[in-house]
Design a protein around this nucleic acid. Structure first.
Length: 663
DNA sequence: TGGGGTGATATTTTT
DNA sequence: TATCACCCCA
């Protein structure tokens, strides 16, 4: 059953609609029901409805839920995807209008960073901070939809001027590689649609209603894309909550919520304030915390679920102790209440905090699942394989070539590569293409030439087969003949590791195969691009074997769990140090808000008195956010403020204990 | 192949 | 400090 506001949001189709939905107010439900309403009641054909989310997980969840409501034939052609996937769809329709060709590659942030690195003089290559600053600036420009030319019109500092020239070179290189980065997936469609009204008209016809989840996370470029696609009449439903805006660092503009009212005068706005998720005390705590922020939209969440339990605060000695206490508590709680492990979540600010918990969980033999952290694609063997596949599809992709040409080692060294780079730059063609030129081959030593010719012969044969045969056997053949397994055994000191890597390689092939089965009309390059945007782990996560969930606060948004442990409630960690310095406490507070509102029935906060950070042992102060919670709702454990005497006494007794043990 | 030692390096969040 | 890549030796 829907409440009055939810129902209004679902059935309103007269114009642009903004739904301000507090945490746990049934936001996703509204989107799903609205899709159903559009199809069933308003007879929109499913292919004309597009729902966009920001994370794969959210998209996945939505697809999953709609499967249970709409029969397959009714939802055929319905699009539920991330913003970046939408951008990819648009690019794929008309790549040439964006200066791309069919089969273009997507490069991830790491690839892009590596690319920028190649532009810098060797002396600067090692300065990570420098590198990061450059990437960040380029990212900011791209998200403001600025071209290098546009940027150059402003007066710039010397440093910015230098970054600008790198930006220019970066963009040019991507285009010659026939590649795009993540930001291009949004930016290129926007500029293209602005320039080509006919294409825009086609897309407007195709997308008769656009639904956008977590609208507060959209950035400038994404806002532009939305306004273009929905046209003046504004056939869209945007759902968002400014209190849950936690992606400002990635360019998200929560102001986009209010910009909608400015750009669409007929915008209707509906607030959802009834929370169906959490018990009263948890909700009160969240409400009170967020009042310390200046928010764009006033709202007050309320719940009918009763007050529920107190929020517990576990004060721990250090990070290790925190992990042990939390997990001990979890174990006993589970036993006492006969709960299953997947009803528990441990949340934290940064991925590195997962380690301590992971260790203890493993020690206790408790099943757990970590979301986020290093993705599959960060693994070397996966990146290697993807590079091979990318090159197979797109021989312009020099980044892929650079990875491929000497992995495994083929006796083609730095000198040869340098000669090749020079030659290729002169010719203005890709490395792979040039590598086959006689004019180049004659310039290098016999041994290198032999190696290069062998490699090219082998790879070209694969490319020919790719055109004519089913792709999977070709890929399998490639893996078997490329000598990668031997390379792995050389690389790793244990055969165990090498075997594991090889398994990953075969898993990847398996994934490609499965994706192909699911979408038979796709070719390898489509699959590759899909893989770049979807983390394999997201999908395998669907195996719902029971396990405790570990994830960052960011990753937890949109999810809910009966029992939540929110760890690391300390200054410099939950308001993160960098955010304190950058004066971005409000975003951190929203992050805490997101964490608290994940809990349905029981929330446990934990903090450590000291924590090792880098080399040093760091004394921690409890998070200021703890002071901002209603004290009556909190129940403290172990809050003995240790005076020096107490510490001394504790140390003595500890020592005595040790002596006892030694006897 | 596997064990152990050394030295460098990291610490915010993600498509 | 803890981990990881890397290297050497058995």
């Amino acid at each position: 059953m829907l409440n009055a506001q939810q129902k209004a949001a679902v059935t309103y189709t007269d114009g642009p609609l903004l739904v301000l939905a507090g945490a746990g107010s049934g936001k996703t439900r509204v989107i799903i029901q609205k899709i159903v309403h559009l199809i069933e009641q308003r007879h929109y054909p499913a292919p004309h409805i597009y729902a966009v989310t920001f994370t794969n997980k959210a998209a996945q969840e939505m697809k999953h839920r709609i499967q249970h409501i709409l029969p397959a034939e009714r939802r055929r052609g319905l699009k539920i995807a991330t913003f970046h996937t939408l951008g990819l769809h648009i690019l794929k329709q008309t790549p040439t209008l964006c200066d791309l060709h069919r089969g273009f590659s997507i490069m991830d942030s790491e690839d892009c960073l590596g690319l920028i690195q190649t532009f810098l003089p060797p002396a600067r290559k090692r300065d990570r901070e420098d590198l990061f600053r450059i990437q960040q600036q380029i990212f900011i420009w791209k998200n403001a939809l600025l071209t290098p030319e546009a940027v150059s019109k402003n007066s710039l500092s010397e440093e910015s001027l230098e970054i600008l020239s790198l930006f220019q070179r970066y963009q040019d290189t991507l285009r010659t590689y026939n590649a795009v980065d993540f930001d291009d997936l949004i930016g290129l469609p926007v500029t293209m649609l602005q320039k080509h009204p006919d294409v825009l008209a086609r897309w407007r016809q195709k997308i008769r209603h656009l639904l956008i989840d977590e609208y507060q996370d959209s950035n400038q470029a994404q806002y532009q894309l939305v306004t273009l696609l929905v046209g003046e009449q504004g056939a869209f439903t945007a759902v968002g909550d400014d209190s849950q805006s936690i992606y400002a660092w990635r360019g998200a503009k929560p102001e986009n919520l209010s910009h909608l009212a400015r750009d669409f005068p007929t915008l209707k706005c509906i607030k959802l304030e009834q929370n169906y998720r959490s018990t009263g005390r948890i909700l009160q705590a969240a409400n009170q915390l967020i009042t310390h922020n200046t928010s764009l939209y006033e709202k007050r969440l309320w719940s009918e679920l009763g007050p529920g339990d107190l929020i517990r605060v576990l004060c721990c000695k250090d990070g290790q102790d925190e992990a042990e206490q939390v997990i001990a508590d979890l174990i006993s709680h589970r036993l006492r209440h006969g709960q299953s492990y997947n009803h528990y979540a441990i949340l934290y600010r940064g991925n590195h905090q997962a380690r301590l918990f992971e260790n203890v969980l493993r020690l206790q033999g408790i099943p757990y699942r970590i979301t986020g952290g290093d993705s599959w694609f960060a693994r070397t063997e996966i990146k290697d394989m993807l590079a091979y596949m990318r090159l197979l599809c797109n021989i312009q992709d020099d980044t892929a070539f650079l990875r491929v040409f000497n992995t495994p080692k083929r006796g083609i060294g730095a000198t040869t590569l340098e000669t090749l780079s020079k030659y290729a730059r002169q010719k203005g063609q890709s490395l792979y293409v040039c590598a086959g030129h006689l004019a180049f081959l004659s310039q290098i030593h016999d041994k290198s030439r032999q190696a290069m010719e062998n490699f090219l012969g082998w790879f070209n044969a694969l490319r020919v087969r790719r055109q004519q045969e089913p792709i999977i056997p070709v890929l399998q053949e490639m893996v078997k003949t490329m000598g990668y397994e031997t390379h792995l055994y050389d690389l790793h000191d244990t055969s165990m590791k090498a075997q594991k890597c090889m398994e990953n390689v075969w898993d990847l092939i398996l994934w490609v195969e499965r994706l192909l089965e699911k979408k038979p009309e796709h070719d390898l390059s489509d699959i590759l691009n899909t893989l770049m945007l979807i983390d394999i782990m997201d999908q395998s996560n669907h195996s719902d074997q029971e396990a405790v969930q570990l994830m960052t606060l960011h990753a937890s948004k949109g999810l809910e769990f009966p029992f939540v442990y929110l760890s690391g409630m300390e200054e410099e960690l939950l308001p993160h140090r960098a955010s304190i310095e950058a004066d971005q406490i409000e975003e951190e507070r929203r992050l805490a808000y997101v964490g608290i509102t994940r809990a349905q029935r029981l929330l446990t906060l934990s903090l450590a008195k000291q924590r090792r950070r880098g080399g040093e042992l760091h004394q921690c102060t409890p998070s200021r956010f703890l002071d901002e919670l209603p004290e009556d709702n909190l129940e403290w454990y172990g809050r003995s403020v240790a005076t020096p005497e107490q510490s001394l006494a504790r140390a003595k007794s500890h020592l005595a204990g040790l002596k006892e043990l030694l006897k």
